[in-house]
Structures are given as structure tokens and as C-alpha cells.
Computed example of a mutant assay.
Amino acid sequence: MKQPYRVAIIGAAASGKTTLAQALAQRYGEPWVPEYLREFCDVRQEVPVAGDQFHIASTQVAREEALAAQGGRFLFCDTTPLMTAVYSIHYFGGIDEQLESLASSRRYDITLVCKPEFAWIPDGLHHEEQDVSGMIDAILLEELARRGVPYTRISGDLDERLKQVGQLLGD
């Protein structure tokens, strides 16, 4: 079975990743992989610590692989291990060896980086107590450059973003 074209959708909190992933899945009638971090926080009712980072990233990958095994044209991934690594750099001062290995080994057919241009609203355990989207965005762009990962910056309202992605996917 042919593997789906994997679309990584990454960016800081409040950059519209989930909204875009859901909209793309609906538009193309293909699956999307929700961000496991949200479920992790909801179920445990606590914020993750450094020791949770590899578990979060590897669970995200396992869910991605399970959906990819079903085939299809596209698979829209609402975050990747690279974002877990970026948050590890910001909150814990670095990336542990297991997480680095996982983040470095993941390949996507296209990487979309959502510009953090929406109003940030704290939402409890899921995200920061203050807006750190600019700092996270800067770390992300540095990590993409360091790793030599090509990406496309996505911006504007949802319709504009869908048009941008549609052009990239050959609509």
C-alpha cells in the first residue's frame, strides 16, 4: 500500500495549526493526526515535565503511523516531534537524546509553519501562562534552519491559508 503524502503542520501556540489541520482534512476527505499534547494535559490534569517529552513525541508518532498505515492520499499532522523538541529547548534548556533522535529521524513530504498571528488566549493546562509564541516561533525557525528542513510559511485567515496550502498540494 502506498504511503500518504505527509503534511507536517507546525508552529507556536495560537498559530492556527489545529484549525488548519482540521480544515485540510475536511477539504480533502483525508485523515489528520490531532496533537497528543492536548490529550496528555486533559487526561493527566497537569503540565508535562522534561521526562514526559519523549513519551509525548513518540505517542504522536505512533498515532501518525497508525493512520498512515490505512493509506490515503494525504495525512495531515497537527504537530511533529520537532515541536516537542522546540518546547523542550524553551522550557527545559535542551533536547534529551531520545527525543533528539526521534525528531531528527522524522521526515515529512512538506512542512508548513503557521505564523503566530492570532490573538493568544490562555487555555489552562494546554499552553503557556503567558504569550511566548514569538520566542517559540524564533526557536522553531532556528531549529528548521539548523536541521536543513525546507518549509513554507503559512499566514492569513483560514481561507488564505487553505489557498496557500492548496497551491502547494497541486489544487
Rank of each mutant, 00 (worst) to 15 (best):
T80R: 03
A138E: 15
E160G: 09
S88V: 01
Y28N: 04
Y108M: 05
L169H: 08
L37I: 00
A50K: 05
D171M: 12
V61I: 15
V43M: 05
L158I: 06
G71M: 06
Y28S: 04
D78V: 00
S88P: 01
L168W: 13
L82V: 01
V86I: 03
V7N: 07
I139C: 15
R6H: 09
H126N: 08
G51N: 09
R73A: 15
Q70L: 10
R147M: 08
A57E: 08
T19D: 08
V86K: 02
L158P: 02
S133F: 07
E143V: 06
R44P: 00
Y28D: 07
P34M: 11
E143A: 15
D42P: 00
P81A: 05
T111H: 07
I89L: 13
D131C: 08
P4V: 02
W32H: 14
A119R: 15
Y36Q: 02
V61W: 12
Y91H: 10
L99C: 09
G72Q: 12
F40G: 02
V33L: 10
L102N: 04
V47L: 08
T152F: 14
E65H: 10
M1H: 12
C41G: 02
S88N: 07
E46Q: 10
Y28W: 14
G11P: 00
L158C: 09
